[in-house]
Amino acid sequence: MHLVFTPKYRRKLFTDTILTRCEEVMRKVCEDFGAELRDFNGETDHVHLLARYPSRIALSRLVGSLKGVSARRLHQDFPTHINKYPRGEHFWSPSYYASSCEGTSLAVVKDYIENQKHPD
């Protein structure tokens, strides 16, 4: 499954360090669900994930945990940077993009994700 999440109001919140931490957190959440985070990357205003998850898990439940846990951890780890942007009560936009990779070469999706313009 290819997932894309954006911060609320598409704020440019992500630096290289924050994206690295976000990946660590999301990788752990996937492990807790019995899922596998196969690839992760992002730009200053969004993140891409390539995940494989068991069919017994509802995608909405996995996404809710990925967004909820990562928002809490990023607020804890980078309070000065994250809290300087007004965003209401939520870190992530309530919407997300999800696309099945059935019928598509995983190499093509991985290449697309890896070629995102990772911030310095």
Rank of each mutant, 00 (worst) to 15 (best):
G88L: 09
D45L: 02
R72L: 10
Y85I: 02
A98N: 01
V25H: 04
L66D: 05
V108F: 06
M26C: 14
S60L: 05
T15C: 10
G88C: 14
R27K: 15
Y97I: 13
P7L: 07
L50Y: 09
R27E: 12
L66H: 05
Y112M: 03
P94R: 09
V69M: 08
D16W: 06
T80P: 00
R11W: 14
T15R: 10
S70R: 09
W92M: 08
E31K: 14
M26N: 11
A98V: 14
D45Y: 03
H90M: 06
L62H: 07
S99D: 12
G88N: 10
D16I: 00
G34F: 02
F5Q: 01
I113D: 03
E114T: 01
R61Y: 09
K28N: 12
F78C: 04
D16R: 15
D120M: 00
L13T: 08
A98F: 02
T15L: 07
S55L: 11
T104Y: 08
K28W: 09
E31S: 13
F14T: 08
L62D: 03
L49Q: 05
C30T: 07
T44I: 11
T17M: 03
L74K: 02
A51M: 13
Y85G: 00
R52A: 09
L50E: 11
H118Y: 09
N115H: 15
G42I: 02
F14A: 07
T15W: 10
L106M: 13
F78M: 01
E31F: 11
N115S: 11
S70P: 12
T17K: 10
Y9D: 08
A71Y: 02
V63H: 05
L49H: 02
H81R: 11
R73D: 07
V63S: 08
L74Y: 03
V108D: 13
S93I: 09
